[in-house]
Protein backbone atom coordinates (compact mmCIF):
# COMPACT_ATOMS: atom_id res chain seq x y z
CA UNK A 1 0.00 0.00 0.00
CA UNK A 2 1.33 3.41 -0.95
CA UNK A 3 1.28 4.93 2.52
CA UNK A 4 2.72 8.29 1.47
CA UNK A 5 -0.37 9.08 -0.61
CA UNK A 6 -2.28 12.13 0.60
CA UNK A 7 -5.40 10.65 -0.98
CA UNK A 8 -5.50 7.11 0.35
CA UNK A 9 -6.86 3.76 -0.68
CA UNK A 10 -10.12 2.69 0.88
CA UNK A 11 -12.23 5.43 -0.71
CA UNK A 12 -15.53 4.25 -2.09
CA UNK A 13 -15.28 5.61 -5.62
CA UNK A 14 -16.42 3.31 -8.41
CA UNK A 15 -13.83 1.00 -9.95
CA UNK A 16 -12.10 2.98 -12.68
CA UNK A 17 -13.09 6.43 -11.37
CA UNK A 18 -11.25 9.01 -13.46
CA UNK A 19 -11.69 11.69 -10.85
CA UNK A 20 -10.00 9.60 -8.14
CA UNK A 21 -6.92 9.18 -10.32
CA UNK A 22 -6.93 12.93 -11.00
CA UNK A 23 -7.24 13.84 -7.30
CA UNK A 24 -4.18 11.71 -6.53
CA UNK A 25 -2.19 13.52 -9.21
CA UNK A 26 -3.24 16.95 -7.97
CA UNK A 27 -2.29 16.17 -4.37
CA UNK A 28 0.98 14.50 -5.35
CA UNK A 29 1.96 17.83 -6.88
CA UNK A 30 0.45 20.04 -4.15
CA UNK A 31 2.00 18.14 -1.24
CA UNK A 32 1.10 18.02 2.44
CA UNK A 33 0.97 21.78 3.08
CA UNK A 34 -2.39 21.91 1.38
CA UNK A 35 -5.93 22.57 2.56
CA UNK A 36 -8.87 21.49 0.43
CA UNK A 37 -12.42 22.88 0.42
CA UNK A 38 -14.62 20.36 -1.35
CA UNK A 39 -18.08 20.77 -2.83
CA UNK A 40 -20.78 18.19 -2.25
CA UNK A 41 -20.66 15.43 -4.84
CA UNK A 42 -19.17 12.03 -5.57
CA UNK A 43 -15.76 13.03 -4.26
CA UNK A 44 -17.07 14.13 -0.87
CA UNK A 45 -19.43 11.18 -0.46
CA UNK A 46 -16.94 8.52 -1.47
CA UNK A 47 -14.07 9.78 0.69
CA UNK A 48 -15.51 10.82 4.04
CA UNK A 49 -18.11 8.36 5.37
CA UNK A 50 -17.65 8.98 9.10
CA UNK A 51 -15.37 7.86 10.76
CA UNK A 52 -13.29 7.03 7.67
CA UNK A 53 -11.55 9.63 5.57
CA UNK A 54 -9.35 9.12 2.54
CA UNK A 55 -7.71 12.51 3.11
CA UNK A 56 -4.39 13.03 4.81
CA UNK A 57 -4.49 16.79 4.44
CA UNK A 58 -6.88 19.21 6.18
CA UNK A 59 -10.10 18.96 4.24
CA UNK A 60 -13.52 20.59 4.60
CA UNK A 61 -16.88 20.11 2.98
CA UNK A 62 -19.81 22.40 3.71
CA UNK A 63 -22.30 22.31 0.83
CA UNK A 64 -22.76 21.88 -2.89
CA UNK A 65 -22.55 25.39 -4.29
CA UNK A 66 -19.92 27.00 -2.12
CA UNK A 67 -16.50 25.35 -2.24
CA UNK A 68 -15.08 28.62 -3.62
CA UNK A 69 -16.66 30.66 -0.81
CA UNK A 70 -15.54 28.26 1.93
CA UNK A 71 -12.02 28.35 0.50
CA UNK A 72 -12.19 32.17 0.48
CA UNK A 73 -13.03 32.15 4.18
CA UNK A 74 -10.07 29.86 4.89
CA UNK A 75 -7.79 32.15 2.88
CA UNK A 76 -8.63 35.31 4.84
CA UNK A 77 -8.75 33.51 8.20
CA UNK A 78 -5.26 32.05 7.77
CA UNK A 79 -4.03 35.46 6.63
CA UNK A 80 -5.44 37.10 9.75
CA UNK A 81 -4.06 34.38 12.02
CA UNK A 82 -0.59 34.63 10.41
CA UNK A 83 -0.72 31.04 9.14
CA UNK A 84 -1.11 31.60 5.40
CA UNK A 85 2.53 31.46 4.37
CA UNK A 86 3.50 28.28 2.50
CA UNK A 87 -0.01 26.85 2.44
CA UNK A 88 -1.79 25.86 -0.77
CA UNK A 89 -5.54 26.37 -0.68
CA UNK A 90 -7.44 24.28 -3.18
CA UNK A 91 -11.15 24.20 -3.92
CA UNK A 92 -12.48 21.00 -5.47
CA UNK A 93 -15.80 20.78 -7.24
CA UNK A 94 -17.53 18.52 -9.68
CA UNK A 95 -19.03 19.98 -12.83
CA UNK A 96 -22.46 20.39 -11.19
CA UNK A 97 -20.92 22.27 -8.26
CA UNK A 98 -18.87 24.43 -10.63
CA UNK A 99 -20.67 25.05 -13.93
CA UNK A 100 -24.16 25.27 -12.43
CA UNK A 101 -24.98 25.67 -8.76
CA UNK A 102 -21.55 26.83 -7.60
CA UNK A 103 -20.86 29.20 -10.48
CA UNK A 104 -21.72 32.38 -8.58
CA UNK A 105 -19.49 31.55 -5.62
CA UNK A 106 -16.70 30.65 -8.05
CA UNK A 107 -17.08 33.94 -9.91
CA UNK A 108 -17.00 35.82 -6.60
CA UNK A 109 -13.82 34.06 -5.53
CA UNK A 110 -12.13 34.82 -8.85
CA UNK A 111 -13.17 38.48 -8.78
CA UNK A 112 -11.90 38.96 -5.22
CA UNK A 113 -8.48 37.72 -6.27
CA UNK A 114 -7.95 35.01 -3.66
CA UNK A 115 -4.77 33.01 -4.04
CA UNK A 116 -6.72 29.79 -4.44
CA UNK A 117 -6.53 27.05 -7.05
CA UNK A 118 -9.97 25.85 -8.05
CA UNK A 119 -10.08 22.41 -9.65
CA UNK A 120 -13.18 21.13 -11.41
CA UNK A 121 -13.35 17.39 -11.96
CA UNK A 122 -15.53 17.39 -15.01
CA UNK A 123 -17.43 14.17 -15.69
CA UNK A 124 -20.08 15.95 -17.70
CA UNK A 125 -23.23 15.26 -15.66
CA UNK A 126 -24.63 15.05 -12.12
CA UNK A 127 -23.17 11.62 -11.40
CA UNK A 128 -23.64 11.55 -7.64
CA UNK A 129 -27.41 11.96 -7.97
CA UNK A 130 -27.64 9.50 -10.87
CA UNK A 131 -26.39 10.93 -14.17
CA UNK A 132 -28.60 13.98 -14.72
CA UNK A 133 -28.00 16.60 -17.36
CA UNK A 134 -25.70 19.50 -16.46
CA UNK A 135 -24.53 22.54 -18.41
CA UNK A 136 -21.28 20.57 -18.68
CA UNK A 137 -22.98 17.69 -20.50
CA UNK A 138 -21.95 17.61 -24.17
CA UNK A 139 -24.35 17.86 -27.08
CA UNK A 140 -26.23 14.64 -27.85
CA UNK A 141 -25.24 12.81 -24.66
CA UNK A 142 -28.04 10.74 -23.18
CA UNK A 143 -28.53 11.30 -19.46
CA UNK A 144 -31.35 10.38 -17.08
CA UNK A 145 -32.91 13.82 -17.63
CA UNK A 146 -31.94 14.22 -21.28
CA UNK A 147 -32.62 10.68 -22.42
CA UNK A 148 -32.32 9.71 -26.04
CA UNK A 149 -35.61 8.59 -27.51
CA UNK A 150 -37.79 8.62 -30.53
CA UNK A 151 -38.10 12.41 -30.28
CA UNK A 152 -34.79 13.15 -28.58
CA UNK A 153 -31.16 12.92 -29.58
CA UNK A 154 -30.06 13.39 -25.97
CA UNK A 155 -28.92 16.77 -24.67
CA UNK A 156 -29.97 19.47 -27.11
CA UNK A 157 -27.47 22.11 -26.04
CA UNK A 158 -23.71 22.42 -26.27
CA UNK A 159 -21.27 22.02 -23.40
CA UNK A 160 -20.67 25.29 -21.54
CA UNK A 161 -17.09 26.49 -22.09
CA UNK A 162 -16.31 26.81 -18.40
CA UNK A 163 -12.56 27.36 -18.61
CA UNK A 164 -12.91 30.23 -21.11
CA UNK A 165 -15.61 31.81 -18.97
CA UNK A 166 -13.39 31.52 -15.92
CA UNK A 167 -10.42 32.95 -17.83
CA UNK A 168 -12.57 35.95 -18.77
CA UNK A 169 -12.30 36.97 -15.10
CA UNK A 170 -8.70 37.87 -15.99
CA UNK A 171 -7.20 35.55 -13.40
CA UNK A 172 -3.61 34.47 -12.97
CA UNK A 173 -3.80 31.07 -14.62
CA UNK A 174 -6.36 28.85 -16.34
CA UNK A 175 -5.72 25.39 -17.75
CA UNK A 176 -7.38 22.20 -18.91
CA UNK A 177 -5.99 18.72 -18.31
CA UNK A 178 -6.62 14.99 -18.46
CA UNK A 179 -5.23 12.03 -16.56
CA UNK A 180 -3.97 10.42 -19.77
CA UNK A 181 -1.65 13.42 -20.15
CA UNK A 182 -0.60 13.28 -16.53
CA UNK A 183 2.77 14.96 -16.88
CA UNK A 184 1.02 17.89 -18.51
CA UNK A 185 -1.59 17.78 -15.72
CA UNK A 186 0.97 17.90 -12.94
CA UNK A 187 2.91 20.68 -14.65
CA UNK A 188 -0.28 22.70 -14.82
CA UNK A 189 -1.09 22.04 -11.18
CA UNK A 190 2.37 23.34 -10.29
CA UNK A 191 1.88 26.46 -12.43
CA UNK A 192 -1.53 27.06 -10.88
CA UNK A 193 -0.17 26.75 -7.35
CA UNK A 194 2.75 29.03 -8.13
CA UNK A 195 0.57 31.69 -9.77
CA UNK A 196 -0.12 34.80 -7.71
CA UNK A 197 -3.88 35.00 -7.41
CA UNK A 198 -6.75 32.79 -8.48
CA UNK A 199 -6.11 29.86 -10.76
CA UNK A 200 -8.38 27.26 -12.30
CA UNK A 201 -7.89 23.81 -13.75
CA UNK A 202 -10.55 21.84 -15.56
CA UNK A 203 -9.74 18.14 -15.40
CA UNK A 204 -11.59 15.96 -17.84
CA UNK A 205 -12.70 13.01 -15.69
CA UNK A 206 -14.26 10.04 -17.49
CA UNK A 207 -16.88 8.22 -15.43
CA UNK A 208 -17.49 4.55 -16.28
CA UNK A 209 -20.80 4.55 -14.38
CA UNK A 210 -22.23 7.66 -15.99
CA UNK A 211 -20.80 7.35 -19.47
CA UNK A 212 -21.39 3.62 -19.51
CA UNK A 213 -18.15 2.10 -20.72
CA UNK A 214 -15.93 -0.70 -19.29
CA UNK A 215 -13.95 0.61 -16.33
CA UNK A 216 -10.53 -0.18 -17.82
CA UNK A 217 -11.12 2.42 -20.57
CA UNK A 218 -11.06 5.51 -18.30
CA UNK A 219 -7.58 6.58 -19.34
CA UNK A 220 -8.10 5.56 -22.95
CA UNK A 221 -11.21 7.76 -23.10
CA UNK A 222 -9.25 10.70 -21.70
CA UNK A 223 -6.71 10.10 -24.43
CA UNK A 224 -9.33 9.72 -27.15
CA UNK A 225 -11.07 12.95 -26.10
CA UNK A 226 -7.78 14.72 -26.69
CA UNK A 227 -6.77 12.81 -29.83
CA UNK A 228 -10.11 13.50 -31.49
CA UNK A 229 -9.81 17.15 -30.53
CA UNK A 230 -13.05 17.09 -28.53
CA UNK A 231 -11.15 18.13 -25.43
CA UNK A 232 -8.40 20.68 -25.97
CA UNK A 233 -5.44 20.81 -23.62
CA UNK A 234 -4.56 24.46 -23.14
CA UNK A 235 -3.42 27.05 -20.65
CA UNK A 236 -3.63 30.81 -20.35
CA UNK A 237 -2.37 33.59 -18.15
CA UNK A 238 -4.88 36.42 -17.96
CA UNK A 239 -8.05 36.77 -20.04
CA UNK A 240 -7.02 37.19 -23.67
CA UNK A 241 -8.33 34.04 -25.36
CA UNK A 242 -6.29 34.95 -28.42
CA UNK A 243 -3.23 34.11 -26.35
CA UNK A 244 -4.21 30.65 -25.22
CA UNK A 245 -1.43 28.13 -25.50
CA UNK A 246 -2.44 24.69 -26.70
CA UNK A 247 -0.18 22.37 -24.74
CA UNK A 248 -0.77 19.32 -26.91
CA UNK A 249 -1.39 19.23 -30.65
CA UNK A 250 -2.74 15.86 -31.83
CA UNK A 251 -0.55 14.73 -34.72
CA UNK A 252 -3.55 13.71 -36.74
CA UNK A 253 -6.94 14.28 -35.21
CA UNK A 254 -8.96 11.08 -35.01
CA UNK A 255 -12.63 11.19 -36.09
CA UNK A 256 -14.93 12.08 -33.17
CA UNK A 257 -16.93 8.96 -33.92
CA UNK A 258 -14.12 6.82 -32.54
CA UNK A 259 -14.43 8.53 -29.17
CA UNK A 260 -18.22 8.65 -29.13
CA UNK A 261 -18.81 5.03 -30.03
CA UNK A 262 -16.81 3.85 -27.01
CA UNK A 263 -19.55 5.12 -24.68
CA UNK A 264 -23.11 3.98 -24.29
CA UNK A 265 -24.26 7.52 -23.49
CA UNK A 266 -23.81 8.10 -27.24
CA UNK A 267 -25.03 4.65 -28.35
CA UNK A 268 -28.19 6.14 -29.88
CA UNK A 269 -26.01 7.95 -32.43
CA UNK A 270 -25.01 4.58 -33.87
CA UNK A 271 -28.03 2.36 -33.28
CA UNK A 272 -30.50 1.36 -34.62
CA UNK A 273 -29.12 3.38 -37.52
CA UNK A 274 -26.19 5.72 -37.66
CA UNK A 275 -27.22 9.38 -37.09
CA UNK A 276 -24.83 10.81 -39.63
CA UNK A 277 -26.24 14.33 -39.42
CA UNK A 278 -25.59 14.51 -35.67
CA UNK A 279 -22.15 12.96 -35.95
CA UNK A 280 -21.28 15.38 -38.75
CA UNK A 281 -22.45 18.29 -36.68
CA UNK A 282 -20.21 17.25 -33.78
CA UNK A 283 -17.27 16.71 -36.14
CA UNK A 284 -17.81 20.09 -37.82
CA UNK A 285 -17.82 21.93 -34.55
CA UNK A 286 -14.60 20.26 -33.49
CA UNK A 287 -13.04 21.06 -36.90
CA UNK A 288 -14.17 24.67 -36.60
CA UNK A 289 -12.65 24.95 -33.13
CA UNK A 290 -9.30 23.59 -34.30
CA UNK A 291 -9.27 25.80 -37.37
CA UNK A 292 -9.55 28.74 -35.00
CA UNK A 293 -6.81 27.35 -32.71
CA UNK A 294 -4.52 26.84 -35.70
CA UNK A 295 -5.14 30.39 -36.86
CA UNK A 296 -4.29 31.70 -33.41
CA UNK A 297 -1.17 29.59 -33.42
CA UNK A 298 -0.15 31.01 -36.81
CA UNK A 299 -0.69 34.55 -35.56
CA UNK A 300 1.43 33.89 -32.50
CA UNK A 301 4.38 32.92 -34.70
Amino acid sequence: MASDELFTSGHRGCAGCGMAAAVRMVLQEAGPNTIVANATGCLEVMTTAYPETAWKIPWIHAAFENAAAVASGIDVALKKLGKREGINILAFGGDGGTYDIGFQALSGMLERGHNITYVVFDNEAYMNTGIQRCSSTPFAASTTTSPAGKFSIGKKEKKKPIASIVAAHDIAYTATATIANYRDLKKKVRKALDAEGPSFIQIFSPCPTGWRYPSELTVELSRMAVETGIFVLWELEGSDMNKIKVTYWPKERKPVEEYLKMQRRFAHLFKPEKKTDILNKIQEEVDEKWKHLEELNEMAR
Binding site: A37, N66, V70, G73, I74, V76, A77, L78, K79, L81
Partner: peptide, 24 residues
Protein backbone atom coordinates in the same frame (compact mmCIF):
# COMPACT_ATOMS: atom_id res chain seq x y z
CA UNK B 1 -9.67 42.08 10.96
CA UNK B 2 -10.23 40.66 7.49
CA UNK B 3 -13.40 41.95 5.86
CA UNK B 4 -14.51 39.59 3.10
CA UNK B 5 -17.13 41.17 0.87
CA UNK B 6 -18.81 38.24 -0.81
CA UNK B 7 -21.16 38.11 -3.77
CA UNK B 8 -24.12 36.81 -1.74
CA UNK B 9 -25.25 36.07 1.80
CA UNK B 10 -24.96 32.38 1.00
CA UNK B 11 -21.28 32.86 0.28
CA UNK B 12 -20.89 35.13 3.32
CA UNK B 13 -22.06 32.33 5.62
CA UNK B 14 -20.05 29.78 3.64
CA UNK B 15 -16.91 31.88 4.06
CA UNK B 16 -17.79 32.29 7.75
CA UNK B 17 -17.79 28.49 8.03
CA UNK B 18 -14.42 28.20 6.27
CA UNK B 19 -12.93 30.93 8.45
CA UNK B 20 -14.35 29.57 11.69
CA UNK B 21 -13.10 26.06 10.89
CA UNK B 22 -9.68 27.66 10.39
CA UNK B 23 -9.78 28.87 13.98
CA UNK B 24 -10.87 32.48 13.46
Amino acid sequence: AELLLTESEHSAMSAAIGASASGA
